[in-house]
């Protein structure tokens, strides 16, 4: 069971454009819709490779860290796993439901209360309404927001906001969790609670990918670390 790869990247390349106005992209896109042709694989003017020839596997229940400077392709990998974008070349296999916590609270609305946002954000992360109804007590308790849970989140402090977002995220019933720079949430108490929660997720066979600049923190929680630079994997750490 434990050696099933739940995420498999095989020779993945991803191209991005630097240009603001994409005069060609829509035309290309429409042409490829009509002719069924794949998009061009070579670089055109103003384009660059965000990922070059990335291959790795992640097994069920593993915790993998992605480490590297800005622009090394960490977030692009998470976006590819969560199906937000697609690879230019190569194959990606992802098995199971993904909870992409790429930015905490991306789906929060300031005018809605904590409870309302739990439903909003929870369904965005792939939970069903009935699942959320069952879990709502747990989420509220974990966030430690008490009476503030019925207050619009625009009245929250930034710490409270992040705590709520994190609680929603880690209580989602996904199989794969993606965290982007979200380890530094809340005070020390809340942080240790978070680390415990990560351990629980793994104990239930959840797979975790963490992106961070903080190498020491990654070493503390991850089984393996993928070192990225300029869109390639350094040191060839095989996972």
């Amino acid at each position: 069971m434990l050696s099933d790869p739940v995420i498999k990247f095989e020779k993945v390349w991803k191209k991005y454009s630097k240009q603001q106005v994409l005069n060609n992209s829509l035309r290309d896109e429409l042409v490829s819709v009509i002719t069924g042709r794949k998009c061009r694989e070579e670089l055109a003017e103003g384009e660059f490779w965000a990922l070059r020839d990335i291959s790795f596997n992640v097994n069920r229940g593993e915790c993998i860290g992605l480490y590297g400077p800005n622009g090394s392709g960490k977030s692009t990998i998470l976006k590819l796993i969560s199906n937000v974008t697609y690879p230019t070349k190569g194959d990606i296999i992802v098995q199971g439901r993904v909870a992409p916590l790429i930015e905490l609270g991306a789906g929060m609305h300031p005018d809605l209360t904590g409870i309302e946002n739990i439903y909003m954000n929870g369904t965005i992360l792939g939970s069903s309404i009935s699942e959320l109804k069952r879990r709502i007590g747990e989420v509220v308790e974990f966030s430690g927001l008490d009476d503030f849970i019925n207050v619009p989140v625009k009245k929250y402090s930034s710490g409270m906001y992040l705590r709520l977002a994190f609680s929603i995220a880690v209580h989602s019933s996904a199989d794969i969790f993606l965290f982007d720079e979200v380890l530094a949430v809340g005070d020390e108490d809340f942080q240790s609670k978070c680390l415990k929660r990560l351990a629980t997720i793994r104990a239930h066979n959840g797979t975790i990918l963490v992106v961070s600049h903080d190498n020491a923190a990654l070493h503390r929680i991850c089984d393996n670390i993928l070192n990225l630079e300029h869109g390639t994997v350094l040191q060839g750490e095989s996972i």
């Binding site: 937000v84 991306a106 965005i124």
Partner: peptide, 8 residues
Amino acid sequence: NLVTKIYF
């Protein structure tokens, strides 16, 4: 912010 971060 939703479209670039989460798939649905």
